[in-house]
Amino acid sequence: MIINIRNFGLFSILVFLFSCAEVKLIQEYDAVSNHKINIIYDKATKFFVKLKRNIGLPENRFEKHIDFYDDLKSDIHILETRTKAIDKSAIVQKQINSLDIQIQTIEQLHKAGFKSKEEIELIQSAFDQTMTAILKLQVALKNKNNQ
């Protein structure tokens, strides 16, 4: 009788474990965040194109691009806040934080002035790699949801 009770108890625990067990180690895909990331990438790419075209011209002066930095910083702040609200989003949060540092560093370089196209291409190359990495993880999160 005792053995039967034990077996039933064990069975019940197993049933409980497996019925609620969908293990979640990382956040779910968030379409709004993904959309915002694409917007940031779009704005930054257009910015780099303009900078390369206007190299050596007064149009490239930092003062003429303050709106761009303010706009991008707002986007990143919104994205950071949204990501923080999502459960198990530590990795994406770290990526957004790194993106923020990159934008701040680009701003510092811009204040000093861009003197060559190569310098901008160098920054854009790193930025493209960053965005590819962020989007790659977004795609993987989306595929996880679709399976």
């Binding site: 540092i101 560093t105 000093a112 160098l122 790193a126």
Partner: peptide
């Protein structure tokens, strides 16, 4: 400053692989 950008970019790549 350029090195900071490259370092942060590399960090993002590693985070992506970790994820």
């Amino acid at each position: 400053l350029h090195l900071t950008i490259q370092k942060e970019s590399f960090k993002t790549i590693l985070l992506s692989f970790e994820g």
